[in-house]
């Protein structure tokens, strides 16, 4: 099936394909470098997030090496081994040493990554410190509501049977303590360098409380209260994204976060009590 013209065609096709693969390699790497300046992880604002970002960087380096290596290998192979007149391919098809190497080496890499991942995971989901600020969070179509304990640090009584459209937290109206609780819509205030413990739920469909600057995300599930905690460590204004499709208005379900000093927070909380 080979003749000279065919050989020439295959060599040319091989070079073009090789160029295409190499172009992918170069563009793939360069565009990531460009992206690192324009579109990268949002500015970090939590203590826990630092180890997540480190993990991200390690994975990025390892996967970049693998991406380059595989594409380089394919690109060279396509350039070097087009069909040629009269030449036969090699016939080898097993090599225990090579196969063991490329089983064991990625396995070791992936296991080390996995252990590092488990360590960070365990840290993120460790028990919250006792002094954490506590906030109840309810997701509903299409807003976030937050409930803060009063200045004495206590939540009033609440129960599912009190839940109505106007009272998503189910606060017991007969409990005077609830008068001291503060409820806000789409407005989460946190104290800088003080751990915060969020009790998250939903009263209709599943939402997801995504806090990208704090490297946290937690679905708000109807019928369940899920706790997460973290320590914001940079004052400023941030956004909450709803990360789970929750209906037509999903894209409007934004919340705001203010991370402020303890005194500013106390002042704000006081101003919210009716």
């Amino acid at each position: 099936m080979e003749d000279t013209g065919r050989t020439h065609d295959e060599r040319r096709a091989g070079r073009w394909t090789s160029v295409l693969i190499m172009f992918t390699l170069v563009a793939g790497v360069l565009s990531f470098v460009w992206s690192a300046r324009s579109y990268w992880l949002l500015p970090l604002a939590s203590a826990q997030g630092a180890s997540i970002d480190e993990l991200f960087d390690i994975i990025l380096v390892l996967t970049a090496i693998a991406f380059v290596a595989v594409h380089l290998f394919i690109g060279i192979a396509l350039w070097r081994f087009p069909a040629r007149q009269g030449a036969k391919a090699a016939h080898w098809h097993e090599h225990l040493g090579a196969e063991l190497t490329w089983t064991v080496v990625p396995a070791i890499g992936i296991i080390i990554l996995g252990i590092a991942g488990e360590v960070v995971w365990a840290k993120v989901y460790s028990a919250p410190p006792a002094n954490a600020e506590q906030v109840d969070v309810v997701g509903r179509q299409f807003e976030w509501q937050f409930r803060y304990p009063g200045p004495d640090g206590r939540f009033g009584r609440s129960a599912p049977r009190f839940v109505t459209s106007g009272n998503p937290f189910g606060m017991d109206p007969s409990d005077p303590e609830n008068k001291q609780n503060v409820v806000t819509i789409n407005d989460l205030h946190l104290v800088v360098n003080r751990p915060v413990l969020l009790h998250i739920t939903s009263i209709d469909v599943i939402h997801s409380l995504s806090l990208p600057n704090f490297r946290m995300k937690q679905d708000a599930v109807p019928g369940r209260v899920v706790d997460i905690w973290f320590t914001p460590n940079k004052e400023g204004a941030y956004q909450i994204v709803c990360a789970q499709l929750c209906g037509v208005g999903h894209y409007t379900m934004r919340g705001n976060i203010t991370v402020q000093s303890q005194s500013a927070f106390d002042q704000w909380l006081q101003s919210q009590i009716k």
Binding site: A66, F67, V124, R215
Partner: peptide
């Protein structure tokens, strides 16, 4: 092979759960 490798490698980010906290649903 090229697209499988590219997609497989980005899967490693997502498999490591703490990193998935950030990347999930993006």
């Amino acid at each position: 092979v090229s697209v499988f490798v590219t997609g497989g490698l980005s899967g490693i980010f997502l498999a490591i759960a703490p990193v998935d906290l950030y990347l999930h649903d993006t």
